Amino acid sequence: MPFYGDLEDFPLHAILQGITSTAKSGRLTLGTSSDEITLVFDRGRVAAVTTSDGRLRLGRVLVEQGYVSEEQLEQALALQMVSPTPVRLGDLLLELGFVTRQQVKLALTAQLEESLFRILVKPSGSFAFISETPPAAPDETILDETPLEPLVLNAIRRADEWIASRGRREVITLADEVTDPAVLDSLTRVERAVLLALINGATTVHDLLVETGHPLPEIDAALATLSRLELIRVTEEAPDSRPASE
């Protein structure tokens, strides 16, 4: 029997706790006006994550984390398409020797947390859980030993920071030119992630929280450094310049 409703009435962490604590198997679909993710559970364990956002698919996450190259991902996807039997991308990349099991686990963990975060920052969302009988000999799930609760709590923390940041009025733009290109080599991982997000169109703090996945204190520290290095400009937004939809 399906179980469904609104996330405003049933907190996400409570839904996930109910599924894991009772070792249920099935599909949990979480949706908003712009995003949809599906978590496949096998006896209370997260066996797979699918998302409507192409940037959050496992292959893209592996590339962004530097575990595989674009060429390796394309090769694996091509083999996946012609495989006579369904094969998971992570399993195929492991078989090809492009990644380690730990790297796939880390990428899947990041994919799951980011997907939950995208759902939590939306003002209204829905969920539907459909029970399914697991296969007689279920495949090993790479996230078997990964506790779900810390991922959920971290996604909730990030969502709270993102929502709180919407009251901030800073607008962040890239500098017209880099006066000393050598400073780019000295940037930290967080500072590079912030700079890349700005290049890709981010303009506010809560944009950066979504795009980088880093917590607010790290974002603020990176902005301070990038501003000092004259790589960005941080200006105050006019009070009436925000879209009404926000």
Score class of each variant (00 low, 15 high):
A222F: 00
G201Y: 09
L229E: 05
A221D: 05
D220T: 07
H214C: 01
P215Y: 05
T212G: 08
P217N: 05
I219C: 02
L229Q: 13
L229K: 02
T203L: 12
P215L: 08
L209V: 02
V210F: 12
L208K: 06
R228D: 13
N200D: 14
L223A: 00
T225Q: 13
I199E: 10
H206S: 06
A222D: 00
D207T: 03
H206D: 14
P217T: 01
A224K: 07
L216W: 05
V210W: 12
A222R: 03
A224T: 14
V205K: 01
H214A: 07
T225P: 01
A224M: 10
A202Y: 07
I219P: 08
A224E: 14
T204Y: 13
H206P: 06
T225M: 15
N200S: 12
T204N: 02
G201M: 06
T212N: 01
V205W: 03
V205N: 09
H214Y: 15
L216N: 05
P217A: 06
D220P: 04
E218W: 05
L216Q: 07
A222G: 03
A202D: 04
L208G: 08
V210D: 11
L229Y: 09
A224C: 03
G213P: 02
T204P: 07
T204D: 14
A221K: 09
R228E: 07
T225G: 07
R228V: 08
L226W: 10
D220H: 11
I219L: 04
A221T: 04
V210S: 11
S227H: 03
H206T: 07
H206C: 07
A221G: 09
T225H: 02
L229W: 06
L216F: 10
G201P: 01
L226V: 05
A224F: 10
E218R: 00
A224P: 04
L226N: 04
P217R: 06
T225D: 05
V205A: 11
H214N: 02
A221H: 11
V205D: 04
E218T: 00
L216V: 02
T212C: 12
A224L: 13
E218D: 07
E218I: 03
T204K: 12
D207S: 11
A224Q: 15
T204I: 07
L226Y: 02
I199F: 15
E218Q: 11
S227T: 15
R228G: 01
L216H: 08
N200L: 13
P215T: 00
T203R: 15
T204C: 12
N200E: 15
